[in-house]
Design a protein around this nucleic acid. Sequence first.
DNA 1: ATTAGAGATGTGATGATATAACAATCGAAA
DNA 2: TTTCGATTGTTATATCATCACATCTCTAAT
Lengths: 170, 170
Amino acid sequence: MDEADGPRGSAGSVAFAPHDHARCRRAAIEDAQAHCKTAGLRLTPVRERVLEILLESHVALGAYDVLRRLTDEGAVPQPPIAYRALDFLVAHGFAHRIEKLNAYVACTAPCERHDPVFMICRDCRAVAELPSAPIARDLEREAARIGFDIGRTVVEAEGLCPSCRVGETA
Amino acid sequence: MDEADGPRGSAGSVAFAPHDHARCRRAAIEDAQAHCKTAGLRLTPVRERVLEILLESHVALGAYDVLRRLTDEGAVPQPPIAYRALDFLVAHGFAHRIEKLNAYVACTAPCERHDPVFMICRDCRAVAELPSAPIARDLEREAARIGFDIGRTVVEAEGLCPSCRVGETA
DNA sequence: ATTAGAGATGTGATGATATAACAATCGAAA
DNA sequence: TTTCGATTGTTATATCATCACATCTCTAAT
Ligand SMILES: [Zn+2]
Ligand SMILES: [Zn+2]
Ligand SMILES: [Zn+2]
Ligand SMILES: [Zn+2]
């Protein structure tokens, strides 16, 4: 595996490992642009700008954090501006909502249909996105047993990322 | 297995199956009372009343739903009343918070340390609580791979419960 | 009995997150 | 160029959660 690989094709979490994040961002934006083009979706300026804001790091941002960052650049947009852009990005898989934090992160494995697993650092709010295949299987098996029909899943583990573990209070 | 079994010892979800719910409630309250006694915790009137409210069904209630139910019975308590009681119940495992709904359910497998799996009906908000052992193992394995130290986990599947599946829009 | 301290509750205010409603604008296509 | 659906702008409001501080209530020394 190429150590400089972008998000796609990487086996696991890019978020907690040192990587060429500039490339990471560029790839995600270009993915989104390409996917929108082929799927007939409109990646409008606001939507693209919000995606860029989320892509500045792998840290989860609240809707009002995003809003403040938009504000910094001139006018004073209202909450629906941020929520609508975030809803679009989440609906089409360019970003994910982290329920535990009421916050949002850019997707690091875009353009696939997935309900990923998230590992969320309680110190720095960095979020690693992992494929959910084995866990999804477990959930499906349990669901079948009780006659439950699964739509979407939320799988989030909260804890400490490798960086924040060093020097943590024993 | 005794078909009239209470929550403890039942292999799976009591919430979606017909069962003697009066017994279910009574057992949960008595469990809480007993556990508080032995653990030196104070199951005060407000806390017990909130637990009873949650135990009226296996449907998740928001903090303000609980608050309204308390209100029905006389005075007009303020939000912290409900949140403090819910925090106590969650902290000691008598109830769980459902992140996806910003809501709370009574625990149906009390007095064990657990981060269960929840199956949440999007129609009726009923919540089934399942043991999480296999999924927890998967998560630990993935976490170890990327150097992440898991504290707590949130595993919630949203979908349709058996009752709400019948006659659903194809 | 008295009293100090911890835990729990009552109460008002505020913070944080999210959506409703409707007008104005834009863009693709007829 | 007209039309219509999607998007954005804007005001207001709904929903979820916590802060701060006074009061009360147990308990356990003294
Ligand atoms: Zn990156
Ligand atoms: Zn961290
Ligand atoms: Zn029951
Ligand atoms: Zn249901």
